[in-house]
Amino acid sequence: MLVLALDTATARITAGVVELGPDGPPVTLAARDGVGARAHAELLAPAVRDALAEAGRTRRELDAVVVGLGPGPFTGLRVGLVTAAAMGDALGIPVHGVGTHDAMAAGLPGRILVVTDARRREVYWSLVVDGVRTHGPEVVAPAVLAERLEADLGPVDRVVGDAAHQLGAGGEVPGPTPSGLVAVAAAALRAGTPPAPLSPLYLRRPDAIPPGAPKTVTRA
């Protein structure tokens, strides 16, 4: 099965062509990984094109699309979701959404704390234990997360993500890999399970809101 994997939930733009067999881990045939926190729309389409070209495949050969659902900032995250949905509709193939934090922790044993940049001096975080998310995702200030670790979450084996430095950690795995994204959806893909609707994990209301009703102006 040939799968296109996309994610725009972090500052990194991930696109890759992945082969998923009847068993065993997904194998990445080609990947593109760019950085541009405010350039997702400009970078994603070329990344998809280049990954397909490197893999020697065409869009018509794809069997499915897997896309990261976040958490992530509104504008960047929706670029990946809209692109995945449009490709799935145009090609008549299923589009599976997976948690971006789940994909970042895929294949990592133990207690993995995933921390990504939420801007506004906050972070998104999840705790994944042996591949199963047990807490999150949530959005909080780094100091609040540090208090949670001390109070009730307990020690972790690794901290990954592009905001790990805000907790004084190293920050391995700055973003999801194509194989990690597909690994999270592998069981559903192999079983032919119909995908659920794409429900982005914004965790915040958008900055832009519709204007309110015009104010009534009276004359004295």
Results as ranks from 00 to 15, higher is better:
158 R>F: 01
80 G>D: 06
121 R>D: 12
129 V>Q: 14
79 V>I: 13
131 G>W: 00
120 R>L: 09
147 E>F: 09
133 R>H: 04
89 D>V: 00
144 V>P: 09
147 E>H: 13
106 A>W: 00
144 V>W: 11
81 L>C: 04
154 G>D: 05
81 L>Y: 02
126 S>A: 14
102 D>G: 05
95 V>D: 04
139 V>A: 13
137 P>A: 10
150 E>H: 14
145 L>P: 06
110 G>E: 12
80 G>L: 06
128 V>C: 04
75 T>C: 08
125 W>Y: 15
111 R>W: 12
82 V>K: 02
94 P>Y: 11
133 R>L: 04
136 G>C: 05
86 A>H: 00
102 D>F: 02
106 A>I: 03
146 A>L: 15
151 A>P: 06
139 V>S: 03
96 H>V: 00
115 V>C: 13
113 L>G: 09
115 V>E: 10
121 R>I: 02
112 I>T: 15
130 D>Q: 02
149 L>Y: 07
146 A>H: 07
147 E>S: 12
121 R>C: 01
79 V>W: 01
136 G>V: 02
103 A>F: 03
153 L>A: 05
108 L>Y: 00
135 H>M: 04
131 G>D: 00
97 G>Q: 02
127 L>K: 05
82 V>Y: 03
78 R>P: 07
150 E>F: 09
87 M>G: 14
123 V>I: 14
81 L>W: 01
141 A>G: 14
120 R>S: 09
83 T>H: 13
75 T>G: 06
105 A>C: 08
88 G>H: 12
116 T>L: 10
105 A>H: 03
142 P>D: 04
90 A>Y: 05
97 G>P: 04
125 W>L: 13
130 D>P: 02
155 P>V: 08
135 H>E: 14
76 G>V: 08
105 A>V: 07
80 G>N: 09
107 G>F: 00
146 A>P: 05
126 S>H: 05
158 R>L: 11
80 G>M: 06
121 R>T: 06
155 P>L: 09
129 V>P: 03
148 R>S: 13
92 G>Y: 13
147 E>M: 11
137 P>E: 08
143 A>L: 04
156 V>Y: 07
105 A>S: 08
89 D>W: 01
94 P>I: 10
151 A>V: 15
152 D>K: 07
129 V>H: 13
111 R>M: 14
93 I>T: 07
127 L>D: 03
98 V>R: 04
118 A>K: 04
78 R>S: 08
90 A>Q: 10
138 E>M: 12
79 V>E: 01
103 A>T: 04
104 M>H: 02
126 S>L: 05
128 V>Y: 01
